[in-house]
Nucleic acid binder design. Structure first.
Length: 412
RNA sequence: GGAGGCUUCGCCUAGUCUGGUCUAUGGCGCCGCACUGCUAAUGCGGUUUGGGCUUUAAAGCCCAUCGAGGGUUCAAAUCCCUCAGCCUCCGCCA
């Protein structure tokens, strides 16, 4: 436990402070219980008593009342302190996760191979050039209306998004997920409980006047869906496929991925979310990964799967597998999907529990991207482009694009 | 945005005016047992959640919990304040 906390760069002293606050909470709680029990006894005697006796009882009751309030206050204070410390603590890291920063991932598997454009005799165009020629992407007007990192999907670009979303929801539904359209604005509790108000807080949009947060993923409303609930073990696993807009401030990424729609402030995403028993979480994690691989394979994209390193896990994941698609004009694999096993981390914070054999305990939550629309469009356009600037539509998307097999450039 | 009503231990519900006998009523559902040659019916018992303690265990004890938080009081489901959610009406709007 301590080794993995160090791997995250967290203060080990935090754990000790937490344990001491928790002990203080416990002991003042016991004192409160004892005082309260005596107070209740007096409450029964007082109405029956009279005269001298009653005056005595009332005097003792007055003293007790003050003592109860003091013990209560101390317990509340210790509890708040413990909670404050607890929220600073990230999830425990799975022992097999590679230790290190962003570049210290390990590659688990690779699927397909990057296209050899030299052999085909033409230079690949990037997604923005292709998207503009197809009349699919308009970043200039996005910037005019909303600023940098905003865009319009136009014409066939808009249709492409709808096709992707429909195909993704169809795959998820086929796999047994319940399709969900979720709120994009949530209260602080949901944001905090999913672990987005720690180090990630600077990337979250906040509506100060109303104290609402704009979600960066439907993981947040899908995790919040069952908060403060006890789920019967028989009904697990619960699997939801959420579709929602996602908002990200992208603070600290100035100058990174500024061209096109690879990194944007607002996009739509289909997300898989599972509630399972903790002992099933690793198997479910692999299942989520398999569904992501099925999706990317269907789109005929070359990709690899990485085991994300400790420093890049975020607060809530104990392990994270990313699928990275090959982006020809960048000559690199880039993240398209991400599957995280949060085990009991979010469930504890959101008070989501399961009941099996009369025992109640936290369950595990997992999330995995199925289709983050703009990045998927980037990968599709670049990988399936043809020498004349048209783009081939993979088989699985054709039913959702009116049977269209190729997207052709438009003259303006 | 304005006015009013509501929120009770799975669901429904009594209790709130008039603070203590509420250890929260009753019904439904559910669980167990008994009886009935199956099922049903009937009878009896049980049935919120969290924390702490005792115990080999089974089980038991204490505290909190009547939408949330605060206040008044020796004492709050009950009185006062703030907030949230739901419902109705008015206004506005897609």
């Amino acid at each position: 436990m301590r080794a993995s906390q160090r791997a995250r760069g967290e203060d080990v002293g935090l754990v000790d402070a937490l344990l001491s606050a928790d002990e203080r909470r416990r002991s003042s709680g016991v004192r409160f219980d004892e005082l309260r029990a005596e107070q209740k006894q007096l409450g029964k005697l007082i109405p029956k008593a009279a005269g001298e006796e009653k005056a005595e009882l009332l005097k003792r009751a007055g003293e007790l009342s003050a003592a109860v309030k003091a013990a209560d206050a101390e317990r509340d204070e210790a509890e708040a302190e413990a909670q404050r410390l607890l929220l600073q603590l990230g999830n425990l890291v799975h022992p097999e996760v590679p230790v290190g920063g962003e570049d210290d991932f390990t590659v688990r598997e690779t699927h397909g191979a990057p296209r050899d454009f030299a052999a085909e005799g033409f230079e690949p165009k990037d997604h923005l050039e292709l998207g503009q020629a197809l009349g699919a992407i308009d970043v200039e007007r996005g910037a005019k209306v909303s600023g940098s990192r905003f865009y319009y999907l136009t014409g066939v670009g808009a249709l492409l998004e709808l096709a992707l979303v429909n195909a993704a929801i169809a795959q998820a539904t086929e796999a047994g997920f319940i399709p969900m359209l979720t709120p994009a604005l949530v209260k602080p509790r949901a944001m905090e409980g999913t672990g987005f108000l720690g180090q990630a807080a600077e990337n979250v949009y906040h509506l100060e006047k109303d104290d609402y947060y704009l979600v960066g993923t439907s993981e947040v409303p899908l995790a919040g869906y069952h908060m403060d609930e006890i789920v019967e073990a028989d009904s697990l696993p619960l699997r939801y496929a959420g579709f929602s807009p996602c908002f990200r401030r992208e603070a600290g990424s100035y100058g990174k991925d500024t061209r096109g729609i690879f990194r944007v402030h607002q996009f739509d995403k289909v997300e898989m979310f599972s509630y399972v028993a903790p002992e099933d979480s690793e198997a479910e994690h692999r299942r989520l990964l398999e569904w992501e691989k099925q999706w990317l394979t269907g789109l005929e994209l070359p990709f690899r799967v990485i085991d994300v390193a400790t420093g890049d896990l975020g607060a809530s994941a104990s392990r994270k597998f990313d699928c990275e698609a090959w982006i020809p004009t960048q000559g690199k694999y880039r993240e398209l999907t991400s599957a995280s096993n949060c085990n009991e981390f979010q469930a504890r914070r959101l008070s989501i529990r399961m009941r099996r054999d009369k025992k109640v305990r936290p369950l595990a939550t997992l999330n995995g991207t199925l289709c983050a629309v703009p990045r998927t469009i980037v990968a599709l356009l670049e990988n399936h482009q043809q020498a004349d600037g048209s783009v081939r539509v993979p088989q699985v998307l054709r039913p959702y694009l009116g049977g269209r097999e190729v997207l052709e450039p438009v003259s303006r």
